[in-house]
C-alpha cells in the first residue's frame, strides 16, 4: 500500500500466514471467434512478478484483441482478521479485490473478487475479467488487496480499527505484465556537433520519480570530435577504458544532480511509489541491487568505477 504511516491496523505477515491465502497463477487468454485462446505469461529477466505476454501462435496483439484474466482464490482460518487484534470489526464485511494500475495507459480500476465474512467456512472465489481490445498499453500492475466492504458496529475494544467503506487494509500479492516497450535501454546517443566536447550528459527531468530514465537522461557522444576515434568501436583506436570513464563520470553526475533535489532524493532512496522505468527507479536499482555507495562523492567515484571494472 502506498500509505507509509497507517492510522489503523493493516494486514501483517503474521495474519498473512494464518489466513492461508492461496491463489492459482494468473491465467491469461483472449477471445477470437467466440473461443478462448491461451496466452503465456513469461517472466522477464528473472523477475518473479514482471511478465511479458506471449501468444505462441503469434496472432494476438494488444491492439487487435481483448485480454482476459482468470484466477482462483481460497482462504482458510481468516477469522483472525476480525475483532480487536485483527483489522476489521467482528461484524464488518471484508472484501477481496484486484486493483489494476497502469500509468502508461493512464487508467486504473478495481475488480471486486468476493466477500469475506466473519465465519468458519472455507472461502473459494474466482475472478474472470476482460480488458477491451486496445485498452491497455505499457506496464499494467495487478495487486490483490483486502478492503472494508461493509462497515461494522465497533464494540468498545474495536474503535481503533478501520471502518470506512472502501478503506484498503493491505496487499496480498502482485503481478505485473508488460505489453509494450523494450525496457531497459541505456540512453547513450551518438551526435555530430562540431565545436562541442567529446561527450556530455543531459538530464531533462521535472519529476524524476515519474519520468522515464531512457527518455529524459541522455549520454551524448560527439562523433564530430577529433578524439571520437577512441570511442568508435569499429576502429582499432577504440579505448574501452575511456568509455568506462565516461560512463562512470556520467552516472556520478546524474546521481549527484538527483541528490541535490532533496524531496525527490528521499523518495528515490525509499523506493516507495516510484514509476517503473523512471529515473528514480534506475537510481534505486543502482544503490540497492548493484550496491553502489553514494554516500559521498569519493565513495560514489570508487564504487561506480569498481562496478565497471568488474562487470564490463
Amino acid at each position: 500500500m502506498a500509505a507509509n504511516i497507517s492510522l489503523f491496523p493493516v494486514l501483517n505477515d503474521e495474519m498473512l500466514g494464518k489466513i492461508r491465502f492461496q491463489a492459482t497463477p494468473y491465467e491469461l487468454y483472449y477471445i477470437r471467434e467466440e473461443q478462448e485462446f491461451v496466452l503465456r505469461a513469461e517472466e522477464i529477466e528473472s523477475s518473479l512478478i514482471m511478465h511479458k505476454v506471449i501468444d505462441e501462435e503469434g496472432i494476438w496483439s494488444p491492439d487487435d484483441y481483448n485480454l482476459c484474466i482468470r484466477r482462483r482464490y481460497s482462504l482458510r482460518t481468516y477469522q483472525c482478521l476480525f475483532g480487536e487484534k485483527g483489522i476489521a470489526c467482528k461484524n464488518a464485511v471484508l472484501g477481496l479485490a484486484l486493483v489494476w494500475t497502469s500509468a502508461d495507459s493512464k487508467q486504473r480500476g478495481v475488480l471486486k473478487i468476493g466477500d469475506i465474512r466473519n465465519s468458519s467456512q472455507d472461502i473459494e472465489l474466482t475472478l474472470n475479467y476482460e480488458f477491451l481490445e486496445a485498452q491497455l498499453r505499457g506496464i499494467v500492475e495487478f495487486t490483490t488487496v483486502i478492503y472494508i466492504k461493509e462497515a461494522g458496529t465497533p464494540s468498545w475494544d474495536e474503535e481503533h480499527l478501520a471502518n470506512e467503506y472502501g478503506c484498503l487494509l493491505g496487499e496480498l500479492d502482485k503481478f505485473i505484465i508488460k505489453l509494450d516497450g523494450t525496457g531497459s535501454v541505456f540512453p547513450i546517443y551518438e551526435i555530430s556537433e562540431p565545436g562541442q566536447p567529446l561527450w556530455y550528459v543531459k538530464c531533462d527531468w521535472e519529476d524524476p520519480t515519474y519520468e522515464q530514465f531512457s527518455e529524459c537522461v541522455s549520454i551524448n557522444i560527439n562523433t564530430a570530435h577529433k578524439n571520437y576515434k577512441y570511442l568508435d568501436k569499429t576502429k582499432r583506436t577504440f579505448d574501452e577504458q575511456l568509455l568506462k570513464e565516461i560512463m562512470a563520470s556520467a552516472l556520478i553526475l546524474i546521481i549527484t544532480k538527483l541528490k541535490e533535489q532533496d524531496n525527490y532524493w528521499d523518495v528515490t532512496t525509499n523506493g516507495d511509489d516510484i514509476q517503473k522505468g523512471s529515473v528514480s527507479e534506475a537510481i534505486y536499482y543502482f544503490i540497492n541491487t548493484l550496491e553502489w555507495d553514494v554516500s559521498t562523492p569519493e565513495a560514489m567515484s570508487i564504487s561506480i568505477r569498481k562496478f565497471f571494472e568488474q562487470r564490463i
Partner: peptide, 10 residues
C-alpha cells in the same frame, strides 16, 4: 486515494 479506493467506496 492512498487509503480508499474510490470504486470501492459506498
Amino acid at each position: 486515494v492512498m487509503v480508499i479506493d474510490p470504486a470501492l467506496y459506498l
